[in-house]
Design a protein around this nucleic acid. Structure first.
Lengths: 242, 242
DNA sequence: CTCACCCTTTGACAAGGATCAATGAGCCCG
DNA sequence: CGGGCTCATTGATCCTTGTCAAAGGGTGAG
């Protein structure tokens, strides 16, 4: 956190932005109070339930969004129906592909998701005028590229057991944990077994078997399919071959 | 190509840049004649033979480069030695990771490579001062992210046969072909079988077998291991499940 | 010319993960 | 309360790909 953010009086900015994560660590942190006010006028906040398409393959992209809470999965699909999740996005990530009106990637809410949406045009114009915003987008894009490349190692070179451990490790380090303490870290899995399989390039049966194995070995505990406890992150990391 | 580039008199710019691909389609196309002249003063052009490390894992990055010709592979390696190629870069791609001094990615020349190298600091300063340059970098980074995500589908969901066909298709569409005509497209493979295996998450034996199969099926012809002819790109694309 | 080395191909076999199939657990709705 | 969902687990078997081993072809050095 060596970054210098303008010191903004709360009174200068829209009320809804004051507590917003996107303003602190996301895209909006690079905006002036004026820009923020302007953007807020055309923004709308929405809550979306799990399994809803946010950006559909090959449809023109009319909006960008900031994720306020929840998890969004980016997927690609082959002609014969094989599917691959190519990225997971968490709050306060920016959702959208600047400079291209169509995308061959789908975006779908994996959990209940709250987003703050803007018309594409308003943001495109703002990008042109604000080098700070473009700088922020470049940084986020570079980080996403790093993550994508890191995941390529998992997909190409890890075993099924390592893949599942890697996935759990990824979630544990990206989601706000329900609780965190000496007895480990607890969180709710944002993805179904089918989603996990599509993220790891496996089948749901293999995912299930590997989860069972991690559970039996005491690396994780699972309740109700989704509720996961990791007593020892180091141990999980080791299983993930990180 | 709807992009508006400044109309530059050749006399205004360094001689060496006049015919350079990076100026036409690469990073340097976003620079003013003054910036180009300035950058040229601190730049040095080099020819590097195949198998040389350009950026070593966890070493501080002191230079950025433009690739003038040849192919560079970006690799990641697990603790036990398993390796994965996470990207291939062709002329006139920009090589380097702005805003981070160290990277856990290696860059190595796959073929003989000619590069134009600049000290990191000079470029970092120029990025700060030139929104055009940053804009260009954002565009390239977004494209690389798209490509990385596209490749994730190949790694996660395609069969060995489809992976090898996908690789050949990728090379055929990214490299300047030796010849191109009614009888197909001819090029030199920039990677060894071991590299191809590391790119596809396979073993060299599997790569070899799948190449043999494509050859026997008449989808490609191979001479001297490296010299490839693709008589019908459509047919190759079909095998790649694109 | 011949040896040594590297890269590649090919074969035989083993194994990791996919496929097919059945069962179980939770949940909504009548 | 029971039936019909969806999602997850578990088992049996199959097959694609990895592993181990041997040999071929090209190239450079002596």
């Amino acid at each position: 956190m060596t970054e210098h953010r303008r010191d903004i009086h709360n009174s200068d900015m829209p009320v809804l932005c004051q507590a917003c994560e996107a303003r602190h660590h996301g895209m909006c942190g690079s905006l002036t109070p004026e820009e923020l006010t302007h953007l807020n006028k055309v923004a709308s906040r929405r809550e979306i339930k799990a399994g809803t398409a946010l950006v559909a393959d090959s449809e023109p992209v009319t909006h960008y969004s900031n994720i306020l809470s929840g998890v969004v999965k980016l997927t690609k699909i082959l002609a014969d129906g094989r599917q691959q999740i190519v990225g997971l996005q968490f709050a306060p990530d920016f959702l959208g592909r600047p400079f291209k009106t169509s995308s061959d990637t789908n975006a779908e809410s994996a959990t209940t998701v709250r987003i703050c949406t803007f018309p594409r045009k308003a943001v495109d114009r703002m990008i042109e005028e604000s080098p700070n915003l473009e700088h922020r987008l470049l940084q986020q894009t570079l980080n996403e590229l790093d993550e994508a490349r890191g995941w390529m190692v998992t997909l190409g070179r890890k075993t099924a057991a390592e893949k599942v451990a890697s996935f759990l490790y990824l979630i544990a380090t990206h989601i706000d944990p329900e609780s965190e303490g000496a007895d480990g870290i607890v969180f709710e899995l944002p993805l179904t077994r089918a989603d996990i399989a599509d993220f790891l390039g496996l089948t749901i049966e293999t995912v299930s078997r590997q989860m069972t194995k991690l559970r039996k070995d005491g690396v994780i505990q699972i309740e109700n399919n989704r509720h996961v406890t990791v007593p020892d992150m180091e141990r999980l990391a080791h299983r993930a071959a990180v």
